[in-house]
Nucleic acid binder design. Structure first.
Lengths: 115, 115
DNA sequence: TTTCTCTATCGTATATTTACGATGAACGAT
DNA sequence: ATCGTTCATCGTAAATATACGATAGAGAAA
């Protein structure tokens, strides 16, 4: 026992945390929804559907692109964004496994006296 | 069309983003795992299992408590932390629904020319 | 070519996050 | 009462995130 202390986090832990970070803003949660509903969507359309300036939307898109959740195709002056299906499925199963394992181990909780 | 623009985000979007934020650090991903594996755990044990100072671990625990993913019971000078099962199950199904809906809408992706 | 549209990036301001040492409060044990 | 243990909080420094206006570049359209 008492291993770690200087030991770093695992790749899995870092991956899950990074995806969670990419989804840690309501705008990015919504962008994912919008992109999936519309199949694909220009950046400008997203700007119209969000209460944010164009530069800000572009930044959020960049963060989602960073982790691979979406991709953007240049189409003339426009950019067509869409969900990256492969990554989405990996993320879906990875989080499902993570949450299911958390549920598994737990049988007894602490006393109700929550601090 | 082109509704929104000043419209705020929905409660659902804010909730998912907030949970994602709580899980957006490897230490917090790991703390959830450790608490579920050990059923319940003193703060000091977590400190020994993480490459972080006691004050920092306490901060991470606070963030997880903030969104209700864990709870802590005072037991004399110690505090016994554990996963909040009800919240965990809500979060599990909420994220499952979110990801499944994202997968549903998508059939066609953009051209491969990812920018 | 000039102009227009679309989007990424720059610059910047503000707020939040992360991390740690130090301190203090709560409690058990002596 | 005093001491040791456990943990939260304070103070603080550095890094990161969020937001926007302004600008620049890449094409389409004229």
């Amino acid at each position: 026992m008492a291993t770690a202390k200087t030991e770093n986090f695992t790749d899995d832990e870092i991956f899950l945390a990074d995806i969670a970070k990419a989804l840690s803003h309501p705008a990015r949660i919504k962008i994912m929804k919008l992109l999936s509903e519309m199949n694909a969507c220009m950046c400008g359309e997203l700007v119209n559907l969000l209460p944010l300036a164009q530069a800000t939307v572009s930044q959020h898109l960049k963060e989602l692109k960073r982790v691979g959740l979406i991709q953007g195709d240049i189409d003339g002056p426009k950019v067509c964004y869409c969900v990256n299906l492969e990554m989405l499925q990996k993320v879906t199963t990875d989080f499902q496994n993570y949450f299911n394992n958390l549920n598994k181990g737990e049988k007894i909780s602490c006393k109700p006296k929550t601090k």
